[in-house]
Amino acid sequence: MELILAIAIGVVFGAGIWLILRPRTFQLITGLLLMSYAVNLFIFAMGRLWVGKPPITPTPDIDPSQFADPLPQGLVLTAIVIGFATTALYLVMMIGARGLTGSDHVDGREPRS
C-alpha cells in the first residue's frame, strides 16, 4: 500500500509540475489542482496509513494507538477548503486576464515566434 500511494503521489505531482510549466492559463489551473491533490495526500500520509481505524472514539477510555492520526486529517481538511477558495480565485484571474489582455497566455500576451 505504501509503495502504491508513494508512486501515485509522485505521478500526480509530476503531472502537476508539467502542467504549471505550460504556457496557457487553463493548463496552469489544472496543474495547480493536480499539485494540490498530491500535496494533500502527502501531508495526509505523514500520519501513516491506517485501514479501517477512523479517528472516531466511541468511549473516553480508548487506546490511542488503535486510531488513525487525526491531526494531519484536520490540516488536510483545512487545506482542501482553502484550496477550493484559491482555485476559485485563480479561475477568476484567468478569465479576467483573458478579458483584459485578449490572450490566455500566462504572460498576458502571445509569445513572439
Binding site: 505504501e2 508513494a6 509522485g10 498530491a38
Partner: peptide, 12 residues
C-alpha cells in the same frame, strides 16, 4: 515526481 514519491515512501 520521483523526489516526492521517494520522500513519501521513505517516511511511510
Amino acid at each position: 515526481g520521483l523526489a516526492l514519491a521517494a520522500l513519501t515512501y521513505a517516511v511511510l
